[in-house]
Write a protein that binds this DNA or RNA. Structure first.
Lengths: 224, 224
DNA sequence: TTATAAGTTTAGACAAATCTAAAAATAGTA
DNA sequence: TACTATTTTTAGATTTGTCTAAACTTATAA
């Protein structure tokens, strides 16, 4: 068993996310893009990760994360999301401010620290952006989320998360009060540009497709 | 203005501590010892730190930290000690467990994070080991501490800190309940080996010189 | 005051993570 | 199918922080 370096942890996290989010296969250039580095650097790192059995890698054939690698990635993601909860709930940061800090805090190594932090925070199941927090074994909730852009006029939904985590987008949503847990109902969808009119408590907003595509929702059901 | 690397931060912290704690000048080998590295590595680093104006360094002449360097060091020490308070007071770690975790947390860069952590903790003036926490400008309390080994029989003192921060020593002290804030009175000092009999609330303990030398105290004065 | 010891610096090398430029392999298309 | 474009890998360098071994300074002592 090897102890991953900070860089290796970041690569594994990126590969994990690309494996689970994107539709296309995880190739060298997609990793390079997400890590903001060159394809050559990625190739070097893939060999290292493969040597340590965190990924299966064959030259020119792309990458598949192993069970071991997934365990490392989920550990980092767990830390990241727990620290995000700490930063918003305890230190009262806004949800768009916490990502960068959590990127650093996630690499603090102590397992006992994260165990106690989890307990202190009351074992939260979701981070401030609605992303599920893996438990110590790597398991996490994943209620069937779908895009607000796929919602239907007249229906009521609860916001459960976002797919764009950029500061700019999160700030934009907060302006409308469109946060996880909030109830929205779709008043109208425009045929022309697929933009929609939504009702949030007493306010009505016009959301572009660009925006609605990046909001995750679940069906509204009264009582829980 | 440069942004120090983690390694540079650790060197500056070590140099700051050697400048303020030890009696002898800060030379290459003392830094090497405290950083657990070789003299050659230290020489390389001293040139870098000097280039960035965090120290004044002349070959073969030793090192003096600059105002700028001191500011960096005090920033790290502030973070370290605030995180130690967080780990003991909020996450309920024991005082001998927190040092290693704080060594990692101190390098998390956000100034705003540390500002909010400080506020959340109630602007503590001392860490769990009794060491003063610098404020944002680098100022800190420094009430005239002295060694328990220099105390006098019949006198009453309050423990204010320790000079040995090792886990082993801290665990040892906790066994006796010898923590910062606790009142001790010296019942007797043995001529032969300078060991002492001390009273802590209702218990009496025998402390070797080795131990009493590493406990910091101040005179007891009733009411504050 | 000269010899030796102790401490410090230089020289040269290495590992990790990165880069650019060139070569090789794969994919897309006429 | 064969040519071209895209993607990926290799080769060779660079930077940071480290090392060992040798050379050099300063301190100590006969």
């Amino acid at each position: 068993m090897y102890q991953p370096t900070v860089t290796e942890e970041n690569y594994l996290k990126a590969i994990y996310h690309l494996s689970n989010t994107g539709t296309k296969s995880v190739n060298t250039s997609s990793i390079a893009t997400s890590m903001e580095t060159t394809a050559a650097s990625v190739t070097d790192m893939l060999r290292k990760l493969s040597d340590k059995e965190w990924i299966n890698y064959e030259k020119y054939k792309g990458v598949k994360i192993t069970r071991k690698g997934e365990k490392v990635a989920l550990g980092i993601i767990r830390k990241h999301r727990l620290w995000e909860v700490f930063l918003t709930n305890i230190l009262e940061f806004e949800w768009e401010e916490v990502h960068q800090m959590a990127e650093e805090l996630e690499h603090v190594s102590s397992e006992e620290l994260i165990k106690r932090l989890d307990k202190f925070l009351g074992h939260p199941k979701f981070d401030p952006h609605g992303d599920p927090i893996p438990d110590q074994t790597g398991k996490m909730e994943s209620h069937d989320k779908f895009n607000l852009s796929a919602g239907e006029p007249g229906e009521k939904y609860i916001i459960t998360g976002v797919t764009d985590h950029s500061t700019l987008f999160l700030k934009h949503l907060r302006k409308y009060g469109l946060l996880p847990g909030v109830t929205v109902s779709i008043a109208e969808i425009m045929d022309y540009d697929k933009s929609m009119l939504v009702k949030v408590s007493k306010d009505k907003f016009h959301l572009s497709l660009e925006v609605s595509k990046n909001i995750l929702i679940k069906k509204y059901v009264s009582s829980k």
